[in-house]
Design a protein around this nucleic acid. Structure first.
Lengths: 145, 145
DNA sequence: GGAACGACCATAAAATCCCATTGAATACCC
DNA sequence: GGGTATTCAATGGGATTTTATGGTCGTTCC
């Protein structure tokens, strides 16, 4: 669990940075809303580019309204973020709103992408692994002191 | 959300300028009406060229009324705009009219293109992410003071 | 003349960089 | 093994730069 400071800066965990750099050869990541849960979803730029290409292909000859709607819902609220030498990104108001992000954030690695949760939202989510829940609870308790 | 001043100047967000310049090596963008939504749609010039080529392909040897109708609806009222050192474009009366643009504008990046909305029109559009809506509402409220 | 437009300069706020500190995990050595 | 250096991740805070935007001053074209 990492903190979000008064300047809305957030340290991306070093381990995550490592995999991002290995995959994309950049210090960038793409962040956007998750479609189904109150959290943010992030990936390296190569994965984003593949999504983009797929959509482009799918709607190749389609200048119609379907394209516009779909594209907007998929990409409309994503941001490309570079992190600096110390590994920090800045969370925009939009991201903070969509992820319901407060003073702390939980990073959850999920295979090819990762999720960003407010600890409270994470705990409130039904069907979580009790072991993970226990860990997050412990982390929150630690911060509370 | 960026403001449109009394001279109808509008700052293009720096992040968008960056991708435009990376893709097209120019400080230009193409702006036109969206076919199906009350907003403007913008591209870098290379994407515009690709759209043109795609249309050319689709209608190959067909010079009938369908082609010109489509061409008109896609390219009919577009403008090539250069932005200056400070990143501002000037919105013509036509653009302001077609996009129903008033004192403020919402930029939405959508993969290879972007959209320009009047905040009010954006809110009125069905199927939007409620979290984005909430933020835009807050921005409008903030500007209203 | 004067309205519209463009090239500049000015400024406040926000983003970004840079250095310092904390603190935990690891390596090292006796 | 116990205690102590060392490394590096995470973070705090100030300095610096960039962004968005307001304003001024010529120019051009009716």
């Amino acid at each position: 669990m990492n903190g979000v400071d008064a300047k809305h800066r957030l340290s991306v965990p070093a381990s995550l940075r490592e995999t991002i750099e290995a995959r994309s050869q950049t210090r960038e990541l793409v962040l956007g809303p998750d479609e189904h849960a109150p959290c943010l979803i992030g990936y390296d730029v190569t994965y984003f580019d593949r999504l983009e290409a797929r959509l482009e292909e799918e709607f190749a000859a389609d200048f119609g309204p379907g394209r516009s709607l779909k594209a907007r819902s998929v990409f409309g609220a994503t941001e490309h973020l570079k992190y600096d030498e110390t590994g920090r990104i800045i969370l925009s108001p939009l991201m903070r709103e969509m992820g319901e992000i407060g003073a702390h954030v939980v990073f959850i690695g999920v295979g090819h992408h990762f999720e960003l949760w407010s600890p409270e939202q994470f705990l409130a989510q039904p069907g979580q692994d009790p072991r993970v829940l226990k860990l997050v609870k412990a982390l929150i308790a630690g911060r509370a002191q």
